[in-house]
Write a protein that binds this DNA or RNA. Structure first.
Length: 882
RNA sequence: GGAGGCAUAGCUCAGUUGGUUAGAGUACAUGCUUGACAUGCAUGGGGUCGAUGGUUCGAAUCCAUCUGUCUCCACCA
């Protein structure tokens, strides 16, 4: 037994949370010792960006993970929660570029090496910020295994994968049209493009035929790209244009001659059925161009300005050029009309700049062969999404997958291990940093590009465990158990981890993907910087404590659904913690025993059997809920048990014995209340780890920390269901008495005698009488089968309280309004008759009796019997009023 | 254009293979310095479970259609 201490009068989380966290770290509780005889449970953290600050999304994600991890750890699993951070190439690089701009510097001026030095400095300085914030939340990550997507091991894994895929023919380099961000100056993948509706115009333009036979009219939303037109296309089946296919047009302002071609891509019923083709600046046009072998004419610089080949517009950005070109077309009579037009425009997910499709040399991963096994794994249930519906999302994306553009024109990231010989054009893919041309024997030049950030995150579940080495960690903890993340990155990340795990490990990366929604503000809006409606989790922790924050995020929330975060919610959470704190203080100050042992059944009072039974049921229900990832349900079960069952009923019921040190049952009660409190703390620990630990250590305890104690299990030895029901009846009567008194405005201070007429003396007896004294304002409790001719009370002058097990008479004749009383009883009677009629009908329905399960029928019969008992009581009461 | 979520008390949300008199928190009303807690205790009012139809002995729950709302995917010049 450990030394225990008093709890301070007020719940002040700020005073113990950091101290407790430090203690856990010092004792290395978060670091598992691999034990092959035990089952493992592992989670890899979705690595937050090093540029990030903890926001509500992180807080939710990590709270859920910590709940699962702590639950499993206490349930005897060898548990690893592996933390780490993501280098976030584009986001980090943008920050550093911005910081340099303040100093008047550019990337190019300082060069790659110096730039990377700055980036690493920046990582050292700020990369730890988010980690320390995760600690404030109570996250029980094994920090000794912390990883970074750009650390040596992860980099080795990335190179290895790149080379393997290349050798397998699944990585290729090619000139393709890709999404280019003119602001970030890099390509971005399809998944990184966000589409938004923008108001624009539809310009109707005509190009003249070179043979002088008139003009061809069409419409475009991007007139500036006409500089790069290399054809105009119509649908081959379009009767209107049959004769002009093969003719030649001259582009106004430019003068170049281009053909009219026929391609299925053109839809006859949209616009004029004619499309100008600009292979260099539109993905569809690019495809058309390939089919027809059209030249590709790039008209823009990387920052989306017109190139020098068009002197009149050279140097103008896309939008200036558009204006100028439209003006020129108008002047020269080529502009027919302008319509308003709203269309969807792709923008960069980082900076929201409109994406400019651009033809360039990039690296790609061939996705089809990788996607197939990944689809199969989910289809066959090897990997499960919770909730299940998200697999539709996943399948849709995987089945329509396109090749993945993985090269980025950035410096901060994993540099592509491709080397080129400037002399002979030879290319070598190698881990060797100083490759030599196999033909010319000269030093080669490494590809300047880096890889998409998601390329390294895709390997996260095994690169962090040591892959490509066969480490002990990898052998034991892979595949990981549960992946917890938001639905917004299923395609970005989850799907890529799945195909990566299957391809390189030959095994799925995790069993289950637990999906959660977004944390929105109180009005249901997405939290965003621009709206300024973000709530800072650290401020919440400061004000209410980490436990309250965790509670607020975990409660009333089901997998996959968005939730709202409001002051009300966090206050309710804090109030729960406060309630638990005070209940514990009460227990603590009544405890004189120095160890808690469960008394043998014959010593237990009815209330003890009741609370133990309810506790036991709660244990099974909470475990079942957690096992199916119903975290919100589990917590609400615990809330109800703690507050309603334990505090409002059991503590009140126990006070009689607890306050009476002379009572021989006093020590029994101490042990029961201590047992249930400690069990409840353990059940609650995964959700609210700090307060439960602080309280646990103040009580007689057997483990040095609650987090390494055993999570309660269902125990048949404390299942007294049949006897516990009796206390439910006592509660029914108590509530009815209170209701009647409250209805008649009788002050609780006014005590009255209670005459209980009942045939259930196993429920209503000397032992239970005390409960009515304490909880139902009874001055004295008299129990008898009936009081019909009892001189102690005249029944027609008493308030009557009727339940199915007892009728209680309260002599309060001076305040009874008999008319009102009659009205009430008649109302009651009508209600009961209605219920009885409904049930009788149901039970005489042949279909119901024949087809419903026996348990349901028995339940309905029991209800009917109860209502009949009640009705008999009400009828008798009405009788007495006459 | 394709797919999906949500619609239950004034508000925020639970409701687990169809069987409750439909629940909680909060707000509201009334009463209470009940020796753990007013961040509390007790009592109460408040819902034809979005609409219509269907399956069933039985539907908030399953199916179909519709309405409103949010999201994801694709992107037509």
């Amino acid at each position: 037994m450990n030394q225990n201490h008093e709890l301070p009068k007020t719940y002040s989380p700020g005073e113990f949370e950091d101290r407790i966290y430090k203690n856990w770290c010092d004792k290395n509780y978060f670091t598992p010792t691999i034990d092959k005889s035990k089952p493992h449970y592992s989670i890899v953290i979705p690595p937050p960006n090093i540029t990030g600050q903890l926001h509500m999304g992180h807080a939710l994600d990590n709270t859920l993970q910590d709940i699962l991890i702590r639950y499993k750890r206490m349930s005897g699993f060898c548990t690893l929660w592996l933390p780490g951070t993501d280098h976030a190439s584009i986001a980090t690089e943008a920050k550093i570029v911005a910081a340099m701009r303040e100093e008047g510097l550019t990337k190019e001026e300082i060069g790659r090496e110096k730039f990377l030095e700055r980036a690493w400095d920046w990582k050292e300085k700020y990369g730890g910020r988010i980690v320390s914030q995760l600690k404030k939340l109570g996250s029980s990550c094994d920090w000794s295994r912390e990883r970074f997507t750009l650390d040596e091991g992860c980099s080795r894994a990335v190179k290895d994968v790149f080379i393997r895929l290349y050798e397998k023919g699944l990585i290729y380099r090619g000139e393709r049209i890709i999404n280019w961000c003119p602001h970030c100056l890099t390509s971005i993948s399809d998944a990184e493009v966000e589409y938004e509706d923008q108001a624009g115009f539809f310009w109707h333009i005509k190009y003249p035929f070179t043979d002088g036979s008139g003009y061809l009219e069409f419409a475009t939303t991007r007139p500036e790209t006409m500089l790069g037109d290399t054809a105009v296309a119509v649908n081959p089946n379009d009767e209107r244009y049959k004769d002009i296919v093969g003719k030649t047009l001259r582009i106004p302002l430019v003068g170049r001659e281009i053909p009219v071609i026929a391609d299925e891509y053109v839809e006859t019923d949209f616009g004029t059925g004619v499309v100008k083709i600009t292979p260099a600046h539109d993905p569809n046009d690019f495809e058309v161009g390939r089919r027809h072998d059209l030249p590709i004419i790039n008209v823009m610089t990387p920052d989306a300005k017109i190139v020098d080949d068009y002197p009149k517009y050279a140097g103008m950005d896309r939008y200036e050029a558009r204006k100028a070109i439209v003006e020129d077309l108008r002047e020269q009579g080529y502009l027919i009309k302008v319509e308003n037009y709203t269309h969807n425009v792709g923008t960069c997910y980082r900076c929201s700049t409109t994406v400019e499709p651009r033809v360039s040399m990039q690296w790609f991963v061939k996705m089809k062969p990788l996607a197939e096994p990944a689809i199969k794994a989910v289809r066959e249930g090897d990997i499960k999404f919770v909730p299940e519906r998200f697999d539709k999302n996943y399948f849709h994306w995987m089945e329509n997958i396109r090749d993945w553009c993985i090269s980025r024109q950035l410096w901060w990231g994993h540099r592509i291990p491709a080397f080129y010989c400037d002399d002979c054009g030879e290319m070598v893919i190698t881990k060797d940093e100083s490759a030599v041309c196999p033909k010319c024997k000269k030093a080669m030049r490494q590809d300047p590009d880096t890889l998409d950030t998601w390329f390294s995150s895709a390997l996260w579940p095994f690169s962090t465990l040591g892959w490509p080495d066969e480490t002990e960690d990898l052998k034991y903890f892979y595949p990981t158990s549960t992946l917890v993340t938001g639905y917004d990155i299923i395609t970005f990340w989850v799907s890529r981890m799945i195909f990566s795990g299957l391809e390189y490990m030959g095994e799925k990366p995790f069993d289950t993907v637990l999906i959660h929604g977004l944390v929105r503000d109180a009005q249901g809006r997405k939290m965003s910087k621009s709206l300024g409606n973000g709530i800072d989790p650290l401020e919440i922790i400061e004000k209410y404590g980490a436990d309250a924050l965790r509670y607020a995020l975990a409660t009333g929330n089901s997998p996959g659904n968005d939730m709202r975060f409001s002051d009300e919610k966090i206050e309710a959470a804090r109030n729960f913690a406060n309630k638990l704190w005070n209940a514990s203080r009460f227990v603590r100050m009544n405890l004189t025993v120095d160890s808690i042992e469960l008394p043998s059944p014959e010593k237990l009072g009815i209330e003890d059997k009741w609370i133990l039974t309810r506790f036991n049921n709660t244990v099974s229900e909470v475990r079942a809920a957690l096992d199916r990832f119903d975290i919100g349900v589990a917590l609400s079960l615990l809330n109800d048990f703690t507050w309603d069952i334990f505090c409002d009923w059991y503590i009140e019921l126990s006070k009689a014995k607890l306050n009476d040190r002379e009572n021989p049952a006093n020590k029994i009660t101490q042990n029961v209340i201590g047992y249930v409190l400690i069990g409840t703390l353990k059940l609650l620990h995964p959700f609210i780890p700090f307060i439960t630990e602080e309280i646990y250590l103040s009580l007689p305890h057997s483990d040095e920390s609650i987090m390494i104690s055993k999570y309660p299990e269902y125990d048949s030895a404390i299942d007294f269901s049949s006897e516990a029901v009796k206390l439910d009846k006592i509660i029914d009567v108590t509530k009815s008495i209170r209701a009647r008194r409250s209805e008649m405005n009788v002050a609780p201070s006014r005590k009255a005698k209670l005459f209980i007429a009942t045939k259930y003396n196993d429920i209503f007896n000397e032992e239970s009488a005390v409960f009515f004294t304490r909880l139902a304002s009874a001055s004295e409790v008299i129990i008898s089968e009936n009081f019909d001719s009892d001189e102690r009370i005249s029944l027609d002058e008493a308030v009557q309280v009727i339940t199915d097990t007892a009728t209680v008479y309260i002599p309060l004749s001076d305040i009874i309004d008999f008319e009102k009383e009659k009205e009430r009883l008649n109302g009651e009677r009508k209600k009961l008759l209605g219920e009885i009629e409904r049930l009788e009908k149901k039970l005489s329905n042949e279909g119901f009796v024949a087809k419903a399960p026996a348990a349901v029928i028995d339940g309905e019969k029991a209800k009917l019997a109860k209502y009949r008992e009640n009705l008999a009581g009400v009828d008798a009461a009405i009788e007495k009023l006459h």
